[in-house]
Design a protein around this nucleic acid. Structure first.
Lengths: 226, 226
DNA sequence: CATTGACTTAAACGCTTGTTTGAAATTAGC
DNA sequence: GCTAATTTCAAACAAGCGTTTAAGTCAATG
């Protein structure tokens, strides 16, 4: 009676439309980002997706499992894009260390790009923070695995900024993630603050802005104390 | 039967202990930040606070009203501290424009300080983002009023960075808020990433770090496109 | 000492939640 | 074109939610 909700990570295998699952994921991504995981009811979600109430439990097993599947889809895609850009930058440097600005671009561009090119994964960052306290334990474990991917960037940055102690590199990378985060969080506040002057419309311009800012922060002089 | 939950903003007036309200606010602040507004039930909250289930509705009127009261308490305190530091910096500049670094310090220090000195308001920033989509409409309106306080900083920064177009100042101020935000969000990830090397322990060191980073970002060269 | 008011308490309220069910509809394999 | 597996559907489920109620406690007041 029950369908295996775990195994079916593959796509075209079952000949079936595989449509409903994607529709649900897209709607969940949108709503979870707009509100909160626990603030979105399955009735609201399924209605927005145009599917039956029971569809979520049938295809994913539970609401929690839906969140995990959603997070997995987003994380895999984002990390893959980041890793690719970083690898390309390293190859461009011919075995040497790429300049800070290019490492930053590899870190930041995929997230910005996805946030523009629409729906899927668009608001990935926004629920990372909440998943930590709100979501199921399995989601939290996945977040920790996420850290592994950031390590590559920490390493690359440490090599490009040899005058900085290691822990300072970690801190500044952390701040960089915060800046990235701000692209999905509180954009409404920025729009209000600027009287509509600032908006997420021109991808290139926004990307350049973020990269300028983050690069400057990473390259800031180190006024050490402790 | 019902007590006025609106008027009693004063403190020592009623002779009564005024204890329960504060206990509830403190517990709510902690839990709402750890999880999410809608993920914390009143039963969980009142049990953590050690008060009766009905206490929230009696003292605040509703769960929504509790959130608003909580936000108000935090926002007032934080904005007051920021405004005072900015005013002092401006006085120190003798009517002129304070250096960027001092404006940044005025913006950033209060939040960092509160995050160390404990409980009250400690996690203020963390629920700002969520309140926008999750919380009641009244909370969202308060967030918009919040913007007014940031305008003072935008103005001051624009004067200190006259070569930047106005909208760029807004963007960079927005990023600065994101960096600040990262102090409350994803700290667990930073600890994991750094293998425990980076932690929120030394206030002065963390403050210097944040100010360095944000100042450098604000003063970054402007590579304009659009 | 009785009375008033603010506060606390346990129990219950109606309602929404995530989930399950069993039958109907759809699709694939032969 | 039949069979069997898969997917959809409306209805119901128990559990948990925010909220209300009415009786209870306690301190201060007249």
């Amino acid at each position: 009676m029950k369908a295996g909700a775990d195994i079916a990570t593959d796509m075209e295998t079952t000949g079936g439309r595989q449509d409903t699952k994607e529709v649900i994921l897209d709607a969940a991504e949108k709503l979870f980002a707009e509100k909160t995981y626990s603030a979105v009811s399955l009735r609201e979600l399924t209605q927005a997706a145009g599917v039956n109430l029971a569809a979520v439990n049938y295809h994913f097993g539970s609401k929690d499992a839906l969140l995990i599947a959603l997070f997995r889809r987003g994380a895999i895609e984002l990390n893959r894009a980041r890793a690719r850009l970083l690898r390309e930058a390293e190859e461009r440097a011919g075995g040497g260390t790429p300049p800070v600005r290019e490492i930053v671009a590899a870190l930041v561009l995929p997230a910005i790009r996805y946030s523009f090119t629409s729906t899927r994964l668009a608001l990935y960052n926004q629920f990372v923070a909440f998943a930590r306290g709100d979501g199921p334990a399995e989601a939290r474990e996945m977040l920790d695995k996420e850290v592994g991917h950031l390590q590559r960037f920490a390493l690359s940055l440490a090599r490009a900024l040899p005058h900085l102690p290691q822990h300072e590199v970690y801190w500044r990378l952390h701040f960089a993630m915060g800046v990235q985060h701000s692209l999905y969080t509180d954009m409404k506040r920025l729009e209000t603050l600027s009287g509509g002057l600032c908006q997420l419309d021109d991808l290139e311009a926004v990307a350049a802005r973020v990269i300028d800012y983050v690069t400057a922060g990473l390259e800031a002089p180190y006024t050490a104390k402790g």
